[in-house]
Amino acid sequence: MLSVRGLSLSVRGRPLVDGVSLDLKPGELLAVCGPNGAGKSTLLRLISGELTPTAGEIRLLDRPLGAWRPQALAQRRAVVPQSSPCDFPFRAWEVVRLGRTPHPPSAQDRDLAFDLLHAVGAGHLAERLLPQLSGGERQRVALARALAQLHGVSGPGLLLLDEPTAALDLQHQESVLSLLRRRCDQRGDAVLIILHDLNLAAAFADRALLMVDGRALIDAPPEHALTPALVEGAFGLAVRALRHPDTGRPLLVPARADAAAQTLTVP
């Protein structure tokens, strides 16, 4: 579905993304993790075509990204940005309907928008105005818009999401990730998602790509990519690995070896 080879972007001689390669097959969910400033968002903006790489190649469905017509590309690939700065008084369902921009207009677009808002747990927000929504509510509306964009296209789509759970509460984090997981399993969509929560990545992703200083440290299934040694190397923080009691997937928690000493010194 998506093939990235030796992708690099340098700004004024400083490499932001440095020779990243990755493959994403239909039905796969890839979590991109790493510390702040590792180049995760830049990588996503390169893959979405918003930024132009200084080196490397991106192919979507075996065609170079630049060879796609913008409209055809928009029907196969949708992006959920980190935040949406729009402060014009759109209703939430109107924003979702804007996802239909690359498709011919249809009388069903409005109903589709309401359905998709329900699907992301934001059905009750449909008639609310965008400036009145909280950050987390906006993120769910943006996700519904991306789903509207890929709706009705035969064949798998590619979803690129930049920390879509950053402002979400625990329950909505779970429901958004399960929704994405179902898109992969049932429709064969490919999902590339930037996640700060390593445990969400471990629970839902097929693979995790750990980025440090613009480079891919490792790209492997979570149990191999999210080991205490690699995570400590990437984040500079000692962690301990547990097993999730229900799934057996990795569960990472910060090490607290000096916890007792800390409680004593805090006045």
Partner: peptide, 20 residues
């Protein structure tokens, strides 16, 4: 008008929706 509406979301967002 449809493209103009998409543009209100932001230029990057409009481009990702296929707007020239």
């Amino acid at each position: 008008a449809r493209a103009l509406n998409a543009l209100l979301l932001g230029e990057a967002e409009a481009a990702q929706l296929g707007v020239p």
